[in-house]
Design a protein around this nucleic acid. Structure first.
Lengths: 122, 122
DNA sequence: CCGAATCCCGACTGATACTG
DNA sequence: CAGTATCAGTCGGGATTCGG
């Protein structure tokens, strides 16, 4: 319902929205949606992410129960992350979002271009 | 495709994502999804938004072609905003997102609580 | 290999005041 | 009514460094 956006608890709504809307979360979910990965793999697959931000992101996802973290008592250490059932359900939503973006991104880029050029010359 | 999250143009993906993921955009889209509104109406309906942030938000939406802005040459001035066809298509996506949040928010709050309490006491 | 802790900067936001 | 301008505070997140 659109009401969700306005009434009820906009804080909670926004809190979850900013979680998935932050810089890295959806990328991590997208990658983990394919298969479980270990820490260093993620840093290599996701372009530009730092170890710190990967740690922060993956901790937040674990806290929300979207990702599970498994530590193997080996040497060298190995830690694997994978989507939980809840995480996979979010991934489905994320994919519809990604579809929308891929379908309309060219339109939007064009809109921005014409808006910006209109603004310069009256 | 999940690939969209990783390869291709993650910048464009993130650019659109941070647009709809920012603090006010989805609330504005949610309100405008019901019916066209004028500026002051929006400030009254959306709890906590300042005139400045509303301006910034609707400008960005207009730039992307998601919202249309109509100025009536009256006195006092009247400006109305409404979703474009593109904006309505995004609204559909946003609603699936809102549904997911409303369905799982209690689970997530619970996950956070138990994660936080587990962290304190080993 | 995996991560925690610290420092720091630029971007985002809000309060306030002013204008057509 | 519908904005714009300016300034100050907060915060995400990147670089770097240290530990298990």
């Amino acid at each position: 319902m659109a009401q969700l956006c306005t009434s009820e608890d906009p804080d909670m709504f926004r809190s979850l929205l900013s979680r998935i809307g932050d810089k890295w979360t959806l990328l991590v979910i997208g990658v983990l949606g394919e298969e479980r990965r270990r820490f260093t793999e993620l840093t290599e697959i996701i372009p530009g992410i730092s170890r710190r931000m990967l740690t922060v992101t993956v901790r937040a996802l674990e806290r929300d129960g979207l990702v599970s973290r498994t530590v193997y008592a080996e040497v060298p250490p190995r830690v694997e992350y994978e989507l939980t059932a809840l995480g996979r359900s979010l991934q489905l939503v994320a994919l519809t979002l990604a579809d929308w973006v891929s379908e309309h991104q060219h339109t939007i880029v064009g809109n921005r271009r014409s808006f910006d050029s209109d603004a310069r010359e009256p």
